[in-house]
Amino acid sequence: MKTPIFEVKNLSYSYAGGIPALNNINLRVMRGESVALVGANGSGKSTLLRLLDGLVFPSEGEIDSAGMPLTEKALQNAAYSREFRSRVGLVFQDADVQLFSPTVWEEVLFGPLQLGVPRSEAAYRATEALELLGISHLKDRPPFRLSGGEKKKVSIASVISFSPRVLLLDEPTNGLDPHSQGVLIDFLISWVADGNTLIFSTQELDLVEELSSRIIVLGMEHTIVADGRPEDFLSNADFLLKTNLIHEHAHRHKSLVHRHQHAHEHQHAADEQGHGI
């Protein structure tokens, strides 16, 4: 049997002060999977990504990555830390946190240089990452002269540049215009097709449909309430409603007011047929 990329066993995590963030999480992610983490605000998605990236550590339970325990102590070993950090990259939700360098170029070079990639090779990879996201023209800009969408792309480039095999993305399409979203989704689809692993958190069910082969739903009790193929869950309206992923509300279509759930493209198509518009 192949070794999983991540194996999470009985994991619980509480913030300082004892506020629970995750409760008894068990999951296994294999190479080449594209996993969507969904759940309402405060259900623990970001925290789980940080645990998987070895930035914070479980209060209870354990995480193995590629067969090695991922602990604070293990990461103090320089060789292991370098191997793990080179293999796994995390794109933070807040691009302003991720972009701390004086210019875009230094930002994109930060990862490879810290991870010991030789200078010329690092420069080559950084150039490639900028090209891949179509932002080569931003190279000499300071971060405060970037738009929200540009910041997001730079933060992704700054992780891609050290060629991780596992990408953790926290709300990747947040604040992106539809065109940039499309570019990013195309990039991620081809990236996964190359045999890489993707785990991303999102609120957008459209993105789950387009990008993921698997969905993990975190409930309000900070536990996993569902884990499986997206198509099995996204059609279950009652379930989505119960986990706060959709919201029942009233709105107007032409002169007709109706009441339904908010993830509803298919329903509208049906409505329109039904009403004969």
Partner: peptide, 12 residues
């Protein structure tokens, strides 16, 4: 947060 973001990209 920034410290974590640096750590994540290999800062030591």
């Amino acid at each position: 947060e920034i410290y974590l973001a640096m750590l994540s990209r290999g800062y030591s």
